[in-house]
Amino acid sequence: MRVRHVLGGAAAASAAAVAWGALIEVRAFTLREFAVPVLAPGSRPVRILHLSDAHMLPSQGRKQAWLRALADLEPDLVVNTGDNLSHVDALPAVLDAYGPLLDVPGVFVFGSNDYFSPRPKNPVRYLLGGTGVASGGAWQRVPDLPFEQMREAFTGRGWVDLTNRHDALTVGGQRLAFVGVDDPHLEYDVLDDAPADPGADLAIGVAHAPYLRVLDRWNTLGYRLILAGHTHGGQLCLPYVGALATNCDLDTARAKGLHTHRVPGHEPSWMHVSAGLGTSPYAPIRFACRPEATLLTLTG
């Protein structure tokens, strides 16, 4: 009888946790804020709004309204690290949700769910560290999401495409040099050996997935701020423990938030990994890991 009560209590607790994660926390959108001391002493602060992993469905009106309201923050720059879509018809909802933010200077890269519709995945394989990348290279699928139309919409409003390329913007009186890559999770990234622009006030690396090969290369080349998403912060976390998986080779201790990354012999880079705003429609649950956007204030 006692064992039955214990098992019954554990089952009830598990059901309550699933209900919380699927009905409440997955919609508990949160704005995180960090100060990042990467500018020269005395510099005016620059505010970056980091968006990632919206995984938008046309029906997600609450998420769209919350995103539209972020324009009230009046950031100096928007950085979008990909996985905007989760449905072939979601592009109008994405563009409406970003709304006035598309008139703010911005840069972007794509993730796998800007190219390919989500598919069901084995959660055990995910928790054991499986990446979902096909053996021998990128997924052998034909893209079915409107990524080219989204690219045209973003660049048409002034956002800069960083897909395997360099560019620069002057924001808040600071000259920012950027390098970006296509999604490392798909092995689409093309890394070069071009050092960070020594004439820039700050060099920033932008990627969807924070794979160590990308982080290491950019740290050694002098990029002092790196922004990424992809991990969902672990998505299913344990209180006081944190993420159980990152869906890449980044350690779970840095699955989300502001950290540093350093290759021995080089100055450390600041790294922000967004826990993102959405989930796959096949796993619409978060636990101890709220959906988020982040306002990074770059300071002297």
Rank of each mutant, 00 (worst) to 15 (best):
V273F: 02
W218S: 00
L277H: 01
A71V: 02
V94D: 12
S59A: 15
Y211G: 04
P281V: 05
L295S: 09
H50N: 07
H87A: 15
P195R: 04
C237A: 13
V46T: 14
M150K: 04
V214N: 11
A203W: 00
R62S: 14
V3E: 15
L186I: 01
A93Q: 14
W218Y: 01
T131M: 11
G130P: 10
G242H: 13
R217D: 10
R2V: 13
K63D: 06
V124C: 08
V124E: 10
F110L: 14
T260D: 00
R286Q: 11
L296I: 02
F110E: 08
A275E: 08
L102E: 09
T297C: 05
L95Y: 12
V214K: 02
G137S: 06
E152Q: 15
L176S: 07
P264V: 02
L7D: 03
F116R: 01
D183W: 03
A168K: 10
D193I: 02
C248Y: 05
H230D: 08
L186E: 15
A168T: 13
L296D: 05
R2K: 13
A283T: 11
A10K: 08
D103S: 08
I48A: 07
T163S: 15
R44K: 14
R44G: 09
V78N: 03
S59M: 08
A168I: 06
P239N: 07
G242R: 10
A194G: 09
S274L: 01
L295F: 09
P105F: 06
R290V: 06
A54C: 10
A15F: 12
G111K: 07
T260E: 01
A228T: 13
R286I: 13
A283R: 06
D114M: 08
P195V: 02
A16C: 13
